[in-house]
């Protein structure tokens, strides 16, 4: 456990050692603000809730989370520090989990900094704060899912751009898994059970379930399984890459 936290601290310090982390947070905050107020029509809706805010999170994360995740392993592969890291007296999973947690905490910080919008709706009216708490939780869980995917692809290659592109494509597929165009690809040949399962693996439907204000155990299981399984894949990929 302490080993994991050592990794987490190092990774977090790594994020904030360069301006990249700050640039990321600034971009994230600007985009959430712009999406909420301009695309989400926050004022026109006139409702004291954060739907306009949360609805765009899947699409925001689609690009921003892979951008965070891409450096997790690729940078180490490129600098050769993987060899240093993986010969330290740490259990094999510590590096995988530590890196993931660091990224997740980083996203959590960015998410926390959107607090003014929450204060704003509370000042403007009387929102259902239970729903908002659920929204933040759902958003954070979804970010974890995206991040685990991104971390796995980052572990695959020393090229950050390739890692980024692969994760964006995969995350995109997991977003649109419930959309007819994607399902049509399956309906011709695949059994119905597979089609409906693919549809149920979409980030968006689970996220929207939570954003409504209900923490369904099935949604939690979905996000937990996404995170854990992609991280196991991450471990396998890193192991494979060593030769």
């Amino acid at each position: 456990m302490s080993a994991i936290w050592s990794i987490v601290r190092r990774e977090l310090a790594g994020y904030f050692a360069t301006p990249v982390a700050y640039v990321f947070i600034v971009v994230f905050l600007l985009l959430t603000g712009i999406f909420t107020f301009y695309l989400g029509n926050f004022f026109q809706r006139g409702q004291a809730d954060l739907l306009a805010f949360f609805n765009f999170h899947p699409w925001l994360y689609l690009f921003l989370v892979p951008a965070i995740a891409m450096r997790l392993w690729s940078e180490e592969h490129k600098a050769g520090t993987t060899e240093l890291l993986l010969t330290l007296p740490l259990p094999a999973y510590a590096a995988v989990i530590g890196k993931f947690l660091a990224g997740w905490i980083f996203i959590g910080i960015a998410l926390l900094l959107t607090l003014p919008i929450w204060l704003t709706v509370n000042w403007l009216g009387s929102p259902d704060n239970g729903v908002i708490v659920a929204g933040y939780l759902g958003s954070f869980l979804m970010a974890g899912g995206f991040l685990a995917i991104g971390a796995c692809f980052s572990g695959m290659t020393s090229n950050q751009v390739i890692a980024f592109v692969l994760s964006v494509v995969t995350c995109f597929l997991f977003i649109v898994a419930g959309v007819p165009i994607v399902l049509d690809l399956f309906t011709g040949w695949a059994p119905e059970a597979l089609v409906s399962t693919v549809a149920s693996l979409s980030f968006v439907s689970h996220f929207q379930g939570i954003v409504k204000g209900v923490i369904d155990l099935r949604d939690l299981v979905y996000f937990a399984s996404m995170i854990v399984l992609w991280l196991i894949a991450n471990g396998i990929v890193v192991e494979l890459r060593k030769g």
């Binding site: 050592s6 790594g14 050692a17 600098a79 520090t81 060899e83 240093l84 330290l88 740490l90």
Partner: peptide, 23 residues
């Protein structure tokens, strides 16, 4: 390791501290 790979973004003190912590 070959080529002495290190974390370029960390300071020397930070890096050695990290290694000591992990060890």
């Amino acid at each position: 390791p070959e080529g002495a790979p290190l974390y370029p973004d960390m300071t020397v003190a930070g890096f050695l501290g990290f290694i000591a912590e992990v060890r």
